[in-house]
Nucleic acid binder design. Structure first.
Length: 564
RNA sequence: UGAGGGAUAGUUUAAUGGCAAAACAACGGACUCUGACUCCGUCGUUCCUGGUUCGAGUCCAGGUCCCUCAGCCA
């Protein structure tokens, strides 16, 4: 089924997995997992991890689990476990019956903690949070051992059991691993394994009032599920010795943690904390605002799962800190939609064109190709009449060099219809604004070509005024006006770089009647403009489109250099 | 004299010790009933210094710069 393009470059993770397969480290098996915390929406950065986790497993004939890392009941919500599943599925991946939760393992984790206490490898500490921090030392100075570090195993067992039973208040005791307070790696300075949290958990309810920390839960969850390769971002590199320590001390099956660099994208932010701020401070209209880099935002914007997967393939996987140019994301969308999106004519900023020599009440229908890249997509009929709308920017009274579009005395082609020549311009006497343009058409050019094969430089899209549908079109630009939103003056933050023009809503657009059947979520190429998706806000009364990405615009570039 | 990690075109990622490559971006051109698409071309002291070698991005030594870690978050 997979027609291997063989152009896919290798990466260090594939090499490590292949090496393990060759040495038989995991019996040739590959079993990965995608482990989101259900405390927010997934974004493209997660897509990179998802594609890696599910992709590597599929590539080597293995499996990938979906596991919610739900060890902190005060931050996690059911709403997020649903949106996460929806997003992973939409991206095109299937965990089949392997949907797990770290909370599924709370009993086992508790028993293992007891085992570590019995082995003298864990103890109950009764220092306050502040004291623990002080005792931890600093990056350059070693920590000090807690005065509670050498409690007897019996006492530890008793206290831990009473922690579980709910005898103590939040923050009064924690269970800690007994490792090395002088380690250069802070994670090894007797890390906290359990804290008391009198809070209801979204799945276990009030069964527990002590909850395991990430470091204690993650590796063991991997172990329980028989994960072979546990991929995570490089921030966890310092945690690997601890990941290994728990597994070794417990003497259980030991997966391999491998770290890779997280995705950064120009002109956007990719951290749950910052995305949450954008939402809560109303800089955007929710998690699925089409300007958001969340998967739900990209989906609403019009991105296809295929284009996002292609993007994730192309950016590669490495350990370097990097910032990927958002232009690459846009490119993969254009490439995908170029092959698949039906072409349609839509006039965003209408300018009325009256064709003086065209019969008053005549209507013709022209056959228009749906997609020149794919003949199988067929054609449709588009009505034409005496008054049409064209794009305001396609007419200039005083055209500069290299302007190929309509201007006084100039002939252009109306796509798939007729050649027209501008003969007059009607302006508002007060404001000077152009109200309408008058043209004549050449009946010989019917369908868009003439017997004499004469060339016209410009071909314009158009919509018959009498048949046009009204639509709202939302144009999006980058959410931030700087490639690095964090590049701000002292005392300021990334919100200072928010692009005030990231959303432009056009409410008087005219689109061709074929769009009456456009279903929410469906994607089109508006000829000469870009790719657009029908927004969920769209209705029969009022069509609403989102611009997913514009077409490359050479003319805009020429204009820019002309201005200089 | 804390620990760990990283450095290859503008960007991202490749390259059993054997001609430094691809994609994106930019720029120039061809084509065009989308100024789209497509096609062609241009754009490099592999962080530095030395060493090993017939041959080093790759191996060795020393250095420089950047990132991460001091939550009872994940």
């Amino acid at each position: 089924m997979t027609t291997e393009e063989s152009t896919v470059p290798s990466n260090f993770i594939r090499k490590m997995v292949e090496e393990d397969n060759q040495t038989g480290k995991f019996g040739g098996q590959v079993h990965t997992r995608f482990p989101p915390e259900p405390n927010g929406y997934l974004h493209v950065g997660h897509a990179k991890a998802i594609c890696l986790d599910f992709g590597i497993a599929a590539e080597y004939g293995g499996l990938c689990n979906l596991r919610f890392d739900d060890t902190n009941p005060v931050k996690e919500e059911e709403e997020f476990v649903e949106s996460i599943q929806e997003d992973v599925r939409w991206l095109g991946f299937d965990w089949e019956d392997r949907l797990f939760y770290a909370s599924d393992y709370f009993d086992q984790l508790y028993q293992w903690a007891v085992q570590l206490i019995k082995n003298g490898k864990a103890y109950v500490d009764s220092l306050s949070a502040d004291e623990i921090r002080e005792y931890r030392g600093t990056l350059t100075e070693p920590g000090k051992e807690s005065p509670y570090r050498n409690r007897s195993i019996q006492e530890n067992l008793d206290l831990f059991e009473r922690m579980r039973a709910g005898e103590f208040e939040n923050g009064t005791h924690v269970l800690r691993a007994k490792i090395d307070m002088t380690s250069g790696n802070l994670n090894m300075r007797d890390p906290v394994m359990y804290r008391i949290l009198h809070a209801a958990h979204h799945r276990t309810g009030d069964k527990w009032c002590i909850y395991p920390m990430y470091d204690y839960a993650h590796g063991q969850s991997d172990s329980i599920e028989g994960i072979t390769h546990s991929f995570c971002t490089i921030e966890y590199e310092d945690h690997r010795p601890l990941y290994d320590w728990f597994l070794d001390e417990l003497g259980v099956y030991h997966p391999r943690q491998i770290e890779f660099a997280p995705l950064n994208l120009s002109y956007t932010v990719l951290s749950k904390r910052k995305l949450l701020r954008l939402v809560s401070e109303k800089h955007v209209n929710g998690w699925d605002d089409p300007r958001m880099p969340t998967l739900s935002g990209l989906r609403r914007r019009g991105y296809t799962p295929e284009s996002i997967r292609d993007f994730c393939e192309r950016i590669g996987v490495a350990k370097n800190e990097s910032v990927v140019d958002i232009a690459l994301l846009e490119h993969t969308l254009r490439e995908d939609l170029n092959k698949r999106a039906q072409r349609v004519m839509a006039v965003l900023r209408p300018l009325k064109v009256v064709i003086d020599n065209y019969p008053e009440d005549q209507v013709e229908e022209f056959e228009v190709i749906n997609n020149p890249e794919d003949p199988d997509m067929g054609s449709r009929k588009v009505p034409f009449s005496r008054v049409v709308y064209i794009e305001r920017e396609d007419f200039l009274e005083d055209p500069p060099k290299k302007f190929f579009r309509l201007a006084p005395g100039r002939e252009v082609r109306l796509k798939s219809a007729y050649y027209i020549t501008c003969v007059d311009v009607v302006k508002d006497e007060q404001t000077g604004q152009i109200l309408e343009v008058h043209c004549t058409y050449d009946p010989e050019s019917r369908g868009g070509g003439t017997p004499d094969k004469r060339k016209v430089r410009g071909t314009l899209h158009w919509v018959s005024a009498a048949h046009a549908l009204d639509a709202e079109v939302r144009l999006y630009d980058y959410l931030f006006s700087k490639p690095d939103p964090e590049n701000v003056e002292e005392g300021s933050d990334f919100t200072a770089n928010l692009n005030p023009d990231s959303l432009e809503s056009l409410t008087f657009c005219k689109v061709e009647p074929d769009l009456a059947k456009a279903a929410p979520g469906s994607r089109y190429q508006f000829l000469r403009q870009g790719y657009f998706a029908v927004d969920p806000d769209s209705s029969d009364e009022k069509l609403v489109f989102n611009r997913a990405v514009s077409l490359r615009d050479t003319w805009a570039k020429i204009q820019k250099t002309q201005k200089k």
